[in-house]
Structures are given as structure tokens and as C-alpha cells.
């Protein structure tokens, strides 16, 4: 896969809920191999952006594309290309890790052998003794790993992450960041909505700051120091910029 090909794109995207404008003229593109961190306070429009790429929100105007396909016009094609990890990866409590993975993959049209499912979970770093345990006993980090295994099984080109490290301990968050980085290095485009500046700086290639539905600043993550990033974020949050 070409690492320059744009896999995620929003063009002049506007999303309104009744009288409230959640996204206001967003232009965004994420090429293959890039991790894009979308920063912003609550209500800035990060989750609405993710939901629009998922096809859960209909654009009021403008367009979104995933690998050139519109979620509105070709929902099935788009969903086959993307993987989604919310803040809390929702799994069925009474099923084991392997059963959850197999079930979600079946719904995505992928047939997994039991061994393949075990391998996928093992690749995410989930301990083997947990594979056949019910997920009701799993920590949040372990659930994230099942979510990553689903994304891996789907061979998704695009991953949408909504506050993925919220509530994870530093070690788990670091482990998760490394796995996301590794996925991007293999050519996946990753859009990550987050409050976690440290995680964003650690894993992202590009960072965008959203405020009141607008992308107010965008920069290369490698060219900005952590202090500077924190300053920019707070300045936007306090209305100083």
C-alpha cells in the first residue's frame, strides 16, 4: 500500500444536530501509515467526526471518504475497510475473548478458525490463559486488545479510535500506543480522538486541535515539543488563541 495515499478524508464537512452545529467546515485528510490525533475539549466535535466517518452521522453538507468511498453511499464497502475502537470496547460479557472475536469477525464476513483466533489475540499481547475466559473478567486494557484483534482480523485499512487510552494505566496505555504505531507502520491510517496529550505526542504523526466543531490548528507531531503542545492546547481551550 502506498504510504501517501489518503485513506481518510473530510471535505468542508458540516454536521448539525437540530440547531447545534457539531462540525463546522472540517477539512481533514489522513494518509496511509499516518496516525492523526484529534485533540479538543468536550463538545469540540471529535466524537462527531469519528461518528460521521463511521456513517452514524449524516453530513449536513460536505463529504467524508474512506479510501475514496462515501460511508453514506457505500456503507458496506466502507465498513469492511475500517475498524472502530471506542473508549470502552464493548464486548459480550458472557462470551470469552475468543468467542467475542469469532462472533464479531463472523458478522464482518470473516471466518476464523479457533487457532487463528488464538493467534490473533496472542499477537495483541493478550495472555493465553485469558483467551477462553469470559470477558466479564477482563480489564479495560484486555478489552482493547480484543478490539485490536478484531481490527487485525478484518485487515482494516483505517482505524477510528475514540478516547482509546482513557482509563488505561500508563503501562497499558504505552503498550496500546506501540501497537497502534505498529499498525500504522504497516500502512493503516489511524484517526484518534483523544484528551491524552502525552499519548498523542507519543504515537501521532499529525495533530489537529478542534474547538466548537472547527479544526483550529493542525501541525506535524514530530516538530512540536510536549510543552509547546500543552501550551497550544490550553490556549485554545481557554480561548486565548
Amino acid at each position: 500500500m502506498s504510504l501517501n495515499k489518503t485513506l481518510l478524508e473530510a471535505r468542508q464537512l458540516v454536521v448539525k444536530y437540530k440547531n447545534h452545529c457539531a462540525i463546522d467546515g472540517l477539512d481533514l485528510s489522513v494518509p496511509a501509515g499516518c496516525v492523526y490525533a484529534l485533540l479538543g475539549g468536550n463538545g469540540a466535535g471529535k466524537t462527531s467526526t469519528i461518528n460521521t466517518f463511521l456513517g452514524f452521522n449524516r453530513p449536513t453538507s460536505g463529504n467524508v471518504f474512506i479510501d475514496g468511498e462515501s460511508p453514506e453511499q457505500n456503507p458496506a464497502v466502507v465498513r469492511a475497510k475500517l475498524a472502530y475502537l471506542p473508549e470502552n470496547v464493548a464486548l459480550y460479557e458472557y462470551l470469552s475473548g475468543v468467542e467475542n472475536l469469532t462472533f464479531f469477525c463472523t458478522l464482518a464476513g470473516i471466518r476464523l478458525s479457533r487457532q487463528h483466533a488464538h493467534d490473533l489475540l496472542a499477537n495483541t499481547g493478550l495472555q493465553s490463559d485469558a483467551h477462553d475466559r469470559r470477558v466479564s473478567t477482563y480489564s479495560k486494557g484486555m478489552r482493547q486488545k480484543v478490539g485490536l484483534a478484531i481490527a487485525s482480523a478484518k485487515q482494516a485499512k483505517v482505524m477510528l479510535l475514540d478516547e482509546p487510552t482513557s482509563g488505561l494505566d500508563p503501562s497499558a496505555a504505552n503498550d496500546f500506543a506501540q501497537r497502534i504505531r505498529a499498525a500504522a507502520d504497516l500502512g493503516m491510517a489511524v484517526l484518534m480522538a483523544t484528551h491524552d496529550l502525552f499519548n498523542a505526542k507519543q504515537v501521532a504523526d499529525r495533530i489537529g486541535i478542534m474547538k466548537a466543531g472547527r479544526l483550529v490548528e493542525e501541525f506535524d507531531a514530530h516538530t512540536v515539543a510536549h510543552d509547546e503542545l500543552e501550551h497550544k492546547y490550553l490556549a485554545h481551550a481557554r480561548g486565548l488563541l
Binding site: 463511521l54 452514524f56 472502530y84 464493548a90 460479557e93 458478522l107 464482518a108
Partner: peptide, 13 residues
Amino acid sequence: EQGTLRMLHSLGV
């Protein structure tokens, strides 16, 4: 309530 509906929708069910 548990969020699995979003997961199912994201898979195209």
C-alpha cells in the same frame, strides 16, 4: 447501554 450496538453497526450489521 453496553455499547455493543455501536460495535455491531460499525461492522455493517
